[in-house]
């Protein structure tokens, strides 16, 4: 048994310690908001937070989260930055297919939680690991700025 804390709730899970958090969340806990995209930490679709830090859950074993706080997209609205990011995403109609957006929102929320007024370079560096094949990047950038209350005049 592995003991985890997911979105504030204790969970006992019967998986091997090397099992990635992604599959533990999706297939064992049926929390399907966290998405599988590449399995190699290349696309960011599976981004979650461990103690507030963004991690790629497809390459992070459950053992790395024992004794720590796991936050997923299902729980991100419990944080002030998460609520702001979700609201900005809705305001600017960021999503298209939406599949990558859980990961985008988790990365953006981690950025704003640690850096409330990010520059374009800060956004690039925080968000470059998150691929969107629908090409919502311009709106992601604008929505992060909206959530942060910074001007989006120039790219």
């Amino acid at each position: 048994m592995v003991k985890l804390n997911v979105n504030g709730k204790p969970r006992d899970i019967d998986v091997a310690e090397d099992t990635p958090l992604l599959w533990t969340l999706r297939d064992v806990l049926n929390m399907t908001g966290t998405k599988f995209g590449c399995g190699a930490g290349l696309c960011g679709a599976c981004t979650i937070h461990i103690d507030g830090q963004p991690v790629r859950s497809c390459v992070t074993p459950v053992s790395a989260a024992v004794g720590k706080r796991i936050t997923t997209i299902e729980g991100i609205a419990a944080t002030p930055a998460g609520r702001k990011v979700q609201a900005a995403w809705l305001e600017l109609d960021v999503v298209q297919c939406g599949y990558c957006q859980s990961g985008q929102i988790m990365s953006a929320t981690a950025l704003l939680a640690s850096n409330p007024k990010p520059s374009d370079a800060d956004i690039d560096s925080a968000m470059t690991g998150n691929i969107c094949r629908c090409g919502t990047y311009p709106r992601i950038r604008a929505a992060i700025k909206k959530a942060a209350g910074v001007s989006d005049k120039e790219v």
Partner: peptide
């Protein structure tokens, strides 16, 4: 007009084929 499918796509509740349980 604002998209009608956004809410579930920002809170993880939207269901794709891969989310069938």
């Amino acid at each position: 007009h604002k998209r009608l499918d956004t809410a579930g796509k920002v809170n993880g509740s939207a269901k794709y084929g891969i989310d069938a349980r």
